[in-house]
């Protein structure tokens, strides 16, 4: 099956190694009801769901692309665009809301000049508002690449982001 996504997306995905997708399909493809699992594993590899990967899943398993897109767009976990190197998941749960998560969002937006769902121009940070990280007693909370930061203030959030950027610029992280 020929890739049906828009041309622009495909150009961006040129050079993407799609070999892991075949592995995922051979492991889970035959198990009924495993579409979500396959999408999760694909996102684990690429950080998002590349259109080309979805096409392969569709052609190999016979699940219609429309259905795959339906599922992928239904669940908040799935992303159809690449994310920055650091994914900031800012908790907007009830406890965080009561304790001022909107102010934290404002501080992050001011520091990085991005809003919810956007990525910085240098591709370093993506900001995602999430429903609840379940660390309510440390509210307000954000999670960056799996690491949780609690009891935030606007200033503290900015400092954490500056630290990461500093380390990046100094080449301390790969």
């Amino acid at each position: 099956m020929v890739c049906q996504c828009k041309k622009g997306v495909c150009t961006a995905e040129k050079g993407l190694d799609l070999a892991p997708v075949a592995g995922i399909i051979s492991q889970y493809g035959k198990e009924p009801g495993s579409l979500i699992t396959m999408l999760q594993k694909t996102q684990d590899v690429y950080g998002y769901l590349p259109a080309a990967a979805l096409s392969i899943i569709s052609s190999e398993t016979g699940i219609r692309l429309a259905k795959i897109m339906g599922v992928a767009s239904f669940y908040t976990q799935f992303r159809l665009k690449p994310v920055g190197k650091y994914l900031i998941m800012l908790c907007q749960g009830t406890a965080c809301h009561v304790n001022g998560s909107k102010d934290i969002e404002g501080a992050i937006a001011e520091e990085l000049q991005i809003h919810d769902g956007e990525t910085t121009e240098d591709g370093l940070f993506t900001l995602n508002n999430v429903a609840c990280l379940g660390c309510c007693s440390l509210a307000p909370v954000m999670m960056i690449n799996g690491e949780t930061y609690g009891r935030l203030t606007g200033a503290k959030a900015k400092e954490i982001l500056r630290d990461i950027r500093k380390k990046e610029q100094a080449g301390e992280v790969e």
């Binding site: 907007q92 749960g93 009830t94 406890a95 809301h97 429903a131 609840c132 379940g134 660390c135 309510c136």
Partner: peptide
């Protein structure tokens, strides 16, 4: 699937 924002008993 503890989805209530503000609950973490199950976790």
């Amino acid at each position: 699937d503890e989805g209530d924002p503000g609950a973490f008993m199950d976790r």
